[in-house]
Design a binder for these strands. Structure first.
Lengths: 358, 358
DNA sequence: AACCTTTCATGAAAGGTTTCAGGCGCGAGT
DNA sequence: ACTCGCGCCTGAAACCTTTCATGAAAGGTT
């Protein structure tokens, strides 16, 4: 069964193929009656312009890719990414752009990137000098890096270090001296190098808060934890059963924190009376947890919106590279004592403001 | 800046364009040394085959679309869809297939469908005879319908009615006579017609349980509710403040049920002592809510997996149409009295089993 | 009636790849 | 001596659309 092409429509309407193309793309150039005739023929035949042929010619498909270094199932299981994608989606929907989630195919990110029919990428959690990203530059495919460092591309980050500092500082200020820190399961060298992603920057913030009071964050209090409810639960209960009796928990991610909350409840540890807990991210669920989670807020959907706008701008006008850092903000709820005052909202930079405006 | 093409590589490697093509697609046909030479040239130039040109010729892009009738932000905010997409993703990742989420662009689903560069669609929550879906058939684009009726395409559904029946039956069996039913905000005619989607079928199950005990589900106990935490919260508190004092709640969705749970806690209504609550879907969060939510389990990721496998099979072999119905299962947790026994797992049909097998 | 402008429509080329049907050179079979 | 088959590679066509330059017809002016 051959697919119906522009020529079939042309034949049926008694015009040339070019005329059919015009009827769809620039109807002004044709007489109204002709356009009508063509459109009717097209509908009868069930014709729709072939997106590939169109893309081949115009060098645009109208689809942007969001690149994740982990399997797609992991991505969708993570509320952080859901929120991020939702932010991106608000922009693409209204601009008439499609969204392709690009994840390693059969384990190969390289293959996934090469075969993705997109006009550009938003890359999250992967550094520009990562082996799979570099070829994009060479091929002239534009991209924007989120939560990572970039020299030759625009990037969108969040002030992880300040946020982490604020969280740790609050706990230390309140006199906590035995703080359990639940970190990402990232290789040590990445955690130590702030250029390598969020994990390192957040940890650095915690450490600086300790250092500023001449304290030290002892490495046996640092527990690498899978970013799942179960991971956080497990990590906290294991520590507890190992005899550790922390009076506070700092988690680099809300999911992990919520897992710890669950474990604490099960173990009969009262939050916040016996244990204060602060997460990171402020995912939508954080406010709905039991008890509502104090956390470092970052504007997740904005991050997505800013990134995709930057990408679209680069695509449309070849706009200048920008390096944007969005503010973080300590939000106190009920997993810390003294209820729900919130940190001060710092103002966005001018550039970020324009891009964040809906 | 011209993009590097197959001809550039051919020139550099001193072979024809066809040879380059073979080097990538069917290396066996070329001498090993030639392949090597071509690949080196390609890497030096930063060449990657243009996906559009390739798709134009082969009539395959290696991307499948998942079609949602609502804005993308809504989709990603909904844990049900996240879980569904995760299920689909496990299959596409391992098969090397890309995933495009297709949602109305600038409000036009028709435009979104027409311009999506995909080989086929999984369509969720939209009926086959919907105006936007019909043209696909004509254009020969294969699709599979999920949570909807289909005559000319394969479909994957869940036994909504039995699940709903089981939930309502349990509550009535326990003597509840004042049950609040939180439904979707679907037009009445859709709710009444079981062919029109899940809402209608679930409601029908509830109703049948009432009818079987010669009771009637009074329409003022039926409250249309937005599918959000807030929606469920609002709906329950509004009813309570209006003087209604139900002893049980049936919600057509877990999110709604969890909203009701939250409202109940705020109003000082004890669950399950004063109020028993049963949701629908069994999203991952349901087990983690406070208290853990009793609900009608449906195999969400399996639904995605089965649907996408059906689609892939149709694409590859033009396999036969199938109409699959997966089982639902009442799962009792702590939002109902008497703890956590669970209903019997009914077995899948043979066809569904093959497709669900990971 | 000749000429000029507009308006509407077309043919052909371009965009980058894959595939089909050979071509080339050479040794083996007849 | 001729053909065939083999291994390796290539030219050209096909995939479907858009756009550029151009042509034809229609309508108006002198």
């Amino acid at each position: 069964m051959r697919r119906v092409t522009i020529h079939d429509v042309a034949g049926k309407a008694g015009v040339s193929a070019a005329a059919v193309s015009h009827a769809f793309n620039d109807p002004e150039r044709l007489r109204a009656t002709t356009v009508e005739r063509i459109l009717v023929a097209a509908r009868d035949l069930g014709y729709a312009p072939n997106p590939h042929a169109r893309a081949l010619h115009s060098r645009r498909v109208g689809v942007l890719g969001v690149l994740f270094p982990q399997p797609i199932a992991t991505v969708f299981a993570n509320p952080f990414f859901a929120s991020f994608l939702a932010g991106i989606g608000t922009v693409t929907d209204e601009q008439g752009i499609g969204l392709l989630t690009v994840t390693p195919l059969r384990g190969s990110l390289e293959h996934a990137i090469a075969s993705a029919p997109v006009d550009g990428f938003v890359i999250i959690g992967l550094d520009e000098r990562h082996g799979e990203v570099a070829p994009l530059r060479k091929r002239g495919v534009p991209f924007v890096i989120v939560d990572g460092d970039a020299q030759t591309a625009s990037s969108v980050n969040v002030d992880d270090e300040s946020g982490a500092y604020a969280a740790a500082d609050l706990l230390l200020e309140r006199g906590h001296r035995d703080v359990l820190v639940l970190t990402f399961e990232t290789p040590q060298e990445h955690l130590d190098n702030p250029r390598y992603g969020v994990g390192g920057r957040r940890l650095r913030g915690y450490r600086r808060a300790f250092a500023d009071r001449s304290l030290r964050l002892r490495s046996e209090r640092l527990i690498p934890t899978p970013v799942t409810l179960h991971g956080g639960d497990e990590a906290f209960s294991a520590a507890w059963e190992g005899g550790t009796r922390p009076t506070a928990v700092l988690a680099v991610s809300d999911i992990i924190a919520m897992g710890a909350l669950r474990a604490a409840r099960r173990l009969g540890v009262r939050v916040p009376e016996d244990l204060e807990v602060i997460g990171f991210d402020d995912i939508p669920l954080a406010a709905a947890s039991q008890p509502p989670l104090s956390t470092v807020h970052q504007p997740i959907p904005e991050k997505g919106r800013v990134a995709i706008r930057l990408l679209i701008r680069e695509l449309d006008e070849g706009g200048p590279r920008e390096r944007i850092v969005l503010p973080t903000d300590l939000v106190l709820r009920e997993s810390t004592k003294g209820g729900s005052e919130s940190g001060s909202k710092r103002s966005l930079t001018r550039a970020a403001e324009n891009l964040a405006a809906s």
